[in-house]
Write a protein that binds this DNA or RNA. Structure first.
Lengths: 189, 189
DNA sequence: GTCATCATGTAAACCGTTACATGATTGT
DNA sequence: ACAATCATGTAACGGTTTACATGATGAC
């Protein structure tokens, strides 16, 4: 027991929504869970094989072609619920943007401003994407809808926070530019 | 060139603030950058050795004891600026909380509620921690101050967003509980 | 004297991405 | 016919954590 690779959870979860090929699974994860999850082929195919060996998924060969659709089995559904109930695996934080801004005095105000501007643009783009996803999900009439909207909402809140933060940060940069003596690179006190 | 392991950036950045032992560096990264960065000993010590070989840091032996303080050299400062200017390394997203909530119908409303409650508590704790860090940083009079506050602000915005999201999510769960037919586990439409 | 903390370092394991190889199917 | 996309799979590589081994120093 206890493999706890969350790839297994994502794969079984995806197949719990509908049967799919490995390829389609990856597409779905990228397009639908993309804002909070990712998987590569190198993870998906071996995981599918392992799950098949354990009887958690069943391979349904589309005759003629090499493509095969994977269907979750009752034992797979049980396993999924078991996995979902396990403690969350927290990834150690690694935010390259904040790392650069923390040492912003070394990087210089102009570059920091650019970083903030880019972050602002990305957050606004994300907001637009979430609006589209929300419309799509709200139009559906599936039981998962409320849960799916919960994850969309998380994205929206986080993107709005990023917009507010970057905007405020750009104002700070204005002040630094107005009074450059505050942060002359190289001085320590 | 172009190793692009952001560990090098974090190590040089840390030493650009003040000379430290490897141990102290790790403590500082955990305590100060902890909300957006992390490094383990297994990364720090080899990186310090490599940087020393390249002349980017200098080892200053505290005589008698085995402990040695590392000091950044002028070439190290140049290297740091070079690294900070490089494109941000984006880690593929992996949010175990949202993964579980997305498949919340399989997990069940009670467990989802618990997850949200925990997330809410953690966000509130984070908010309290940021308040303490902010007070501490604002009391200092160093050139980096505005940049450091920028990263604290990012944490605050994100934690406030998390509080708002989790609170709203708990309301959604109330509605689901009030009308359980919306999301009976197992049905597909 | 002993316990917690400071300090250094390495080896093994893990997890995951990237790149590549390969070929079928579909649209134009 | 050709290109784009669908589809499967693996090998190599890389970064990171974990666990372990080891010992000095300082507090009580």
């Amino acid at each position: 027991m206890a493999r706890a690779s969350q790839t297994e959870t994502a794969v079984l979860g995806g197949l719990s929504v509908q049967p799919m090929t490995g390829y389609a699974l990856r597409e779905a994860i990228r397009d639908v869970l993309g804002h909070f999850w990712s998987e590569s082929y190198g993870q998906i195919y071996p995981t599918l094989s392992a799950l098949e060996r354990q009887g958690h998924v069943r391979k349904e060969d589309a005759t003629k072609t090499g493509a095969s659709t994977f269907v979750i089995t009752p034992s797979g559904t049980r396993r999924l619920r078991e996995l979902l109930a396990q403690p969350i695996q927290v990834a150690p934080p690694r935010n390259g943007l904040l790392l650069r801004l923390y040492f912003g005095r070394q990087l210089g105000p102009a570059a920091c401003r650019e970083l903030l501007q880019t972050a602002l643009g990305e957050a606004q783009d994300a907001l637009a994407r979430y609006a589209a996803i929300r419309a799509e999900v709200e139009a559906q009439d599936v039981g998962d809808r409320d849960y799916w909207l919960l994850t969309v909402s998380a994205g929206e809140h986080s993107a709005r926070a990023a917009v507010a933060w970057a905007t405020a940060g750009l104002s700070t940069m204005d002040e630094i530019d107005a009074d450059p003596t505050r942060t002359r690179p190289g001085s320590t006190a």
